[in-house]
Design a protein around this nucleic acid. Structure first.
Length: 803
RNA sequence: GCCGCCGUGGUGAAAUGGCAGACACAGGGGACUUAAAAUCCCCUUCCCGCGAGGGAGUGCGGGUUCGAGUCCCGCCGGCGGCACCA
């Protein structure tokens, strides 16, 4: 180990201990007593008072993405974001703002459960041990968190409210007229709902939390289903295990009802373009039309969705998804066997196989024909798995001349291609495919599109379809409802029971009352998932079975449930009667301009820093829950996170992603022991811009460590430094006492600063201030290096300039 | 394939449209030292030159501008996301 540049091992723990003992960074809610001696009370002259929201300084809420406390301990990526937010928290406090800067644990999750399966040790035990280790590591980094607000998603005092929020979703429906969630009691029943059973069925079909039997992503290796967002390239995001489609009865959350608002409200928040774009793409809004095609010799019509109704004249065949409800009806006897064979083939193909073979088109003709409504043309109806059952109407009109996929299919099966759009640059040869242009060959009885540009042609043909009762303008979304149940042990149990009907024996679900929360999970000896998708909770018969044939729901919630609202629990973490008090929520989430400098308080969390891996998971789910809570009057802002910044990934020294198998993982504990928390933090900020991906470099840590040594020597008298070293060598036990005898350097004196010294100081202050406002920590640090390098050369160092 | 972001020394990176490479790392030289470590000083984009100095230079090719790393157009390369979404 290199010689210690300065005694950080004595300085850092001392301050950390003092901050902890004195709750230095505690924030106070309106109405909460502020102890007389607390720094916040002294600074704002509120000591010994219970200040109202009006008396408190304007808020600034700085949030970190709380970690999953894994057994591996803290990763160097965690402190990157945490240091950035901590610097800003301290800066805003210095500006007179009331800063809320909390930390907690996203502690439900698969690793603890898998460890339990292997060892039989209860996840609660390993989770507690991991949290203790994370706490130690994070404390030793000296962050200014308000630990009085610490949350743990696995604490019954926390997940009680996660269950409560689920009940809010369960007991609400989305009113398309008001575009808001409303209590289920406002739901009006259509004619025909004349029995309680029918009303219940209708009600249950409208709830924001509902049960559906649908093909889901089943992961046999994990023994659970997964949300679309958790499946990457046909494999589980966690572990990379194969995922297959399987029809199962699952709990769903109606996030699709909020698709339009989730999209629109991106415009009112301050996120990076790339992140907003990712959410936009995921929501996947597309405008188009639904068009009905009459089947030849059959009463039914086939409805398709298209974004290009202007190409209707080029539709030369139709394709239904293999799962489409009309397939069995329309397949002609001659084709029936082949159609059924194809249906089985398609059903057996995993998502992975579909993705890998996406270039090769497969399909069969049903034997049926449909009539193109614009020109009366007789076109064949095919089935193919390149048409998805779950998007649009599960059926398309194929326009091979103007759609690449249709063209590939048409070429494979020798179907006709008819050009109906001429590209704008008419000079170039038409290669069988083009997007926008001018309509050609597109006129029939009562409808003339020829010569119209694509946008105009869309309008004209849609109006014609509406007039004839053959179609309408439609908007479709890629976003699917959120599959919300998991077959796991280590998650929140659903506050739901299934009651049996006395006459029919059929079961229906009912919610527990709020008074029955928290619903604790049962104790189990065996946490193993089952092969058939039965959750482990189903083994806990004593817990499961209630009087009168009633049984509990045995699925649990996904890990996202707890992280969907933790930023709200921080506002009032110890509240036993509400998930957050209305007053605390209003104070911390709605901005009130007031004294102090810095930007005006934002609506929602002022600054949220975290990794980009949650772009379409946590960040979309949390916005959805927040909007539901907003609609139901539980929170006062439409969006949870005003400004969001993604920290960049920190790579290993070899420029590769850090991983155990590559052996390039940097352990924060080692860095801390060798260089101290300040050097560690400073290095992570000095590496480069916060949002960039950048490789770790231990020599770079030494560079900033040397800088901190220069700062130390700028202030400390050379002779007393030598005495300190000698005293420590002679009597290591009293290092702290030796440290207290270290003197200020003789060159530091009271006295007038020269114009040059003042200029250097103010250039530094100006640069650092400006950089902090824009989160440019690397250049702020370099400005301080410049100043210190210059100050070291001064023979007389005025105390006023250096302090 | 589509969308987004990004291409600057040996490396991490700086640069409201105005002296490209601040600040560091690595490297080279020197001081101190018996020696090493630590510290301090000097050099360090590339090419030519002993030197003074000269020339080139921000992925490539064009353009706008008095002036372009920065703005516009077209390529090439890298990273991330989406990927049969009709």
């Amino acid at each position: 180990m290199a010689r210690r540049q300065y005694p950080f091992h004595l300085i850092e723990p001392r301050w950390q201990e003092q901050w902890h003992a004195g709750q230095t960074f505690r924030a106070f809610n309106p109405g909460e007593l502020i102890p007389a001696g607390h720094p916040f009370g002294i600074r704002h002259q509120l000591g010994g008072k219970a200040a109202t929201a009006e008396e408190l300084p304007p808020k600034f809420y700085i949030l970190d993405m709380f970690p999953y406390p894994s057994g591996a301990g803290l990763h160097v990526g965690h402190p990157e974001g945490y240091t950035a937010t901590d610097i800003l928290a301290r800066y805003r406090r210095a500006q007179g703002r009331h800063v809320l800067h909390p930390m907690g644990w996203d502690a439900f999750g698969l690793p603890a459960e898998q460890y339990a399966i292997k060892t039989g040790q209860h996840p609660r035990v390993t989770t507690a041990a991991n949290i203790a280790n994370f706490t130690r590591q994070i404390r030793s980094l000296g962050f200014s968190y308000d630990w009085s607000r610490e949350v743990d998603t696995t604490d019954p005092g926390y997940f009680r409210w996660t269950q409560w929020i689920f009940l809010q979703l369960y007991n609400a429906w989305f009113n398309p007229a008001t575009r808001r969630a409303e209590p289920i009691s406002t739901l009006e029943y259509p004619a025909g709902c004349d029995t309680e059973a029918r009303r219940r069925a209708y009600r249950d079909s409208r709830r924001l939390a509902y049960v559906a039997e649908a093909p889901v992503n089943w992961c046999p290796a994990l023994g659970t289903v997964l949300a679309n967002e958790e499946v990457v390239d046909g494999k589980s995001e966690v572990g990379g295990f194969p995922v297959v489609r399987k029809p199962m009865r699952q709990w769903m959350l109606r996030i699709t009802a909020y698709a339009e608002r989730l999209l629109e409200d991106l415009d009112r928040i301050d996120w990076s373009d790339s992140l907003k774009e990712m959410q936009r793409n995921w929501i996947g809004r597309s405008e188009g039309a639904e068009v009905d095609f009459q089947l030849e010799g059959h009463g039914e019509r086939i409805r398709v969705f298209t974004t290009r109704p202007d190409t209707l004249f080029g539709a030369t065949y139709m394709v239904l998804s293999p799962e489409h409800r009309l397939v069995a009806e329309i397949a002609t006897p001659a084709q029936k066997a082949e159609v059924e064979r194809y249906q089985r083939f398609a059903a057996g193909r995993s998502d992975l196989e579909r993705a890998e073979l996406s270039k090769e088109k497969t399909g069969v003709w049903t034997g049926a024909h449909a009539i193109n409504p614009v020109n009366g043309a007789r076109i064949p109806v095919w089935i193919a798995d390149y048409v998805l059952a779950s998007y649009g109407t599960g059926a398309i009109m194929a326009v091979p001349a103007h759609d690449e996929r249709d063209l590939a299919f048409a070429r494979t099966f020798g179907l006709p291609v008819v050009q109906v759009v001429r590209p704008p640059d008419a000079g170039t040869a038409w290669e069988g495919y083009c997007d926008e242009g001018t309509a050609v060959n597109s006129s029939g009885p009562g409808l003339v599109l020829d010569g119209l540009p694509t946008a105009e042609a869309k309008r004209v043909v849609t109006a014609w379809l509406v007039e004839k009762g053959l179609g309408q303008r439609t908007v479709n979304f890629k976003l699917r409802d959120w599959l919300f149940s998991r077959q796991r042990y280590w998650g929140e149990p659903f506050p739901i029971v299934w009651k049996a009907d006395r006459e029919t024996g059929a079961r229906h679900h009912e919610a527990l009352g709020e008074g029955e929360l928290p619903l604790m999970p049962p104790e189990l000896d065996d946490y193993k998932p089952t092969e058939d998708g039965q959750p482990p909770l189903a083994r806990a018969t004593a817990w499961l079975e209630l009087p009168g044939g009633t049984v509990r729901e045995t699925n649990t919630m996904p890990q996202w449930a707890g992280s969907c609202w933790y930023y709200l629990r921080y506002l009032d973490a110890r509240n036993g009667t509400a998930f957050v008090s209305a007053e605390a929520e209003r104070y911390w989430m709605t901005g009130r301009p007031g004294t102090g400098t810095g930007p005006a308080p934002a609506s929602g969390v002022d600054l949220y820093v975290g990794g980009t891996e949650h772009a379409v998971l946590h960040l979309l789910y949390a916005r959805f829950w927040h909007k539901v809570l907003f609609d139901l009057g539980h929170v006062s802002t439409p969006e949870p996170f005003h400004k969001l910044v993604n920290q960049g990934l920190i790579l290993g020294e070899d420029g590769q992603k850090m991983s155990k198998s590559r052996g390039n993982v940097v352990n924060p504990d080692d860095v801390l022991r060798e260089y101290g928390a300040d050097a560690f933090r400073l290095y992570e900020m000095f590496m480069g811009p916060l949002s960039e991906t950048k490789p770790w470099n231990t020599q770079g840590v030494e560079g900033v460590y040397r800088f901190l040594g220069r700062v130390w020597r700028l202030f400390v008298d050379d002779a007393s430094e030598v005495e300190f070293e000698q005293a420590c060598a002679a009597d290591p036990g009293n290092a702290a006492a030796h440290l207290a005898r270290v003197r200020l350097a003789a060159s530091i004196a009271e006295g007038e600063a020269t114009p040059g010294q003042l200029k250097a100081l103010h250039a530094c202050i100006r640069k650092v201030t400006d950089d902090l406002e824009h989160l440019r920590f690397n250049t702020a640090i370099s400005a301080m290096m410049v100043f210190v390098n210059e100050a070291l050369a001064w023979t007389s160092k005025p105390a006023g300039v250096l302090a």
